[in-house]
Design a protein around this nucleic acid. Structure first.
Length: 120
RNA sequence: AGAGUUGGCCGAGGCAAUCGCUGUUUACAUCUGUAAAUAGAGGAAAGUCCGGGCUCCAAAGGGCAGAGUGCCAGGUAACGCCUGGGAAGCGUGAGCUUACGGAAAGUGCCACAGAAAUAUACCGCCUUUUUUUAACUAAAAAGGUAAGGGUGAAAAGGUGUGGUAAGAGCGCACCGCGUAACUGGUAACAGUUGCGGCAAGGUAAACCCCACUCGGAGCAAGACCAAAUAGGAGCUUAUGUGUAUACGAAAGUGUACAUACAGUGUGGCCCACACUUAGCUCGGGUAGGUUGCUUGAGGUGUUUGGUGACAAGCAUCCCAGAUAAAUGAUUGUCCACGACAGAACCCGGCUUAUCGGCUAACUCUUUUU
C-alpha cells in the first residue's frame, strides 16, 4: 500500500456477475448528472465500475471521455472508500458538460458518498 | 495577380514536468507482483453498402425460384471498385456527368386537352356541280389535300427547291434514320461508298426478355481447459434395507446373497409435499479462463515492364492487440486557439462527416515587361 494513486486491474469491477450483484442489492447516492451504487466488499480497497450507456452519448469518443474523467477522479479519491464496491452511472445530458463541469460533479458525488460511509 | 480544374501528402496543435493505464522484452521475486526499457487508434477506425481471406455447416450433378450486374478492353484474390477507350450531355476552357443491353416478343400505365392517338378532315386550302351575284361574289353538295391553325409527351422525318388545282418523299439536294459492303480498331465504335423514300411516341431505378454472376451462416465463427449445481452412464463397496441362515430364553451378534432400489417426517390411508439418499470413474458442458489475435493480397526504398490501373525483381523493416474494453489527467508555456471523430478477426473498395495546412500539373481572365 505504498502508492495510493495506482489503479490496477484488481481495483475495477470486471465481471457481469459483480455488476449484477450491485444492481440487485445496493444503496444509492445521486447527483444531477451522475448516480452511484455502492456496497461493502471483503477487500481492503475500493473497486469501481463505470457505465455510460449509448442513450447518454451516442458517439464513442464522448463515452470514452466521460469514462476516463470518472476513472481518473476515482483514482485520486479512492482512499476515502476502502472496502466498497461502487458503480457510477452517467445520466442523460452528461454529454453536454465540458470537462471541468463534469469533474466538479464527480467531486460532489464523492463528498456525498464519504458522508454516507461516515454514518455507517 | 485573381478566378478555377484535377490529383497527392499531413492532421488527438507544439513543448516541458508530475501522476496513471495496456502489451512486449529483460532482471528480480515468486503465484502474479516489483523495477527498468520500449511500443501504444483513423483518414475516415464511422455507415455496414459491396467484394474477398479465414471458420463452421451443407452440398459435391442438373434445374427452378430469388437476388445482383448491364457500352468495350484491361487490372485484381475478388468486386457493384480502379485504369484506359467509345458514345451522349454540360462547361469559353482545364475538365466534369451518365442504371450507357432490348420498346418491329408480349403486358401494363400516360390525367387533361384535341376533330382525330394503328390514324383522323374541326378550321383552313383546292377542284367540280348547282343556285346566286355587277364580279370565282356568296352559299350548299360531292370530292382532293396533312403545307398552315389549334391541342398534346406524341399528329407517320427536318430544311430548301422542283412540282401541283391545292398539296404530298411525289421527284431532287443537304441533314437525320435504317441497311449492305469496304477501310481503321482486339472491341465498343468511327469513317467512306452504295442502296431504301423512311419503318407511328414515352416509360424497362413498371412487369418482362436477353447475357453473365451468386450454397448458407458468421470471430458472440470455431478450437481447447474447466469449478459448482441439477440430471445421465458405468464400476466398487455394504454402514441402511430385504431374504436366508447360525448362536441365544430374549434383546442382540455373526455369516451368505440381493439391492443405491429406497427410507424418514407431515397425515388414518392413497396421492401429494419436504428432507435425506456411500465412494470412485467416465461423458457432457454452465460460470470462468485460454486460444482464434495479428507477419499481412504488409509497409518503406529502388530498378524494370506498361499510356495507366498494376505487375515483377532486389534491399530493408516488424509497426496497437484491448476484453465492461488501454493511449488519459493536472499544471506551466507558446501560437494561427485546435475539425470530423475511437481499433474489437483481417484485408480491397464505395459512401458519408471534416477546422485547416502543404504540394504538383493544367485552364481562363487581367496587368506589366
Amino acid at each position: 500500500m505504498k502508492n495510493y494513486l495506482s489503479f490496477p486491474r484488481s481495483h475495477r469491477l470486471v465481471s457481469k456477475s459483480e455488476y449484477k450483484s450491485l444492481f440487485d442489492e445496493s444503496n444509492k447516492v445521486s447527483q444531477r448528472y451522475l448516480l452511484a451504487l455502492y456496497k461493502r466488499n471483503e477487500k481492503s480497497h475500493a473497486r469501481v465500475g463505470i457505465i455510460v450507456g449509448k442513450r447518454v452519448a451516442n458517439h464513442a469518443v464522448v463515452r470514452n471521455q466521460i469514462k476516463r474523467i470518472v476513472r481518473e477522479s476515482f483514482r485520486a479519491n479512492q482512499i476515502q472508500f476502502p472496502g466498497y464496491d461502487i458503480v457510477v452511472i452517467a445520466r442523460q445530458q452528461c454529454d453536454s458538460l465540458d470537462k471541468t463541469q463534469l469533474r466538479e460533479g464527480i467531486e460532489k458525488l464523492w463528498q456525498k458518498l464519504a458522508i454516507q460511509f461516515q454514518k455507517v
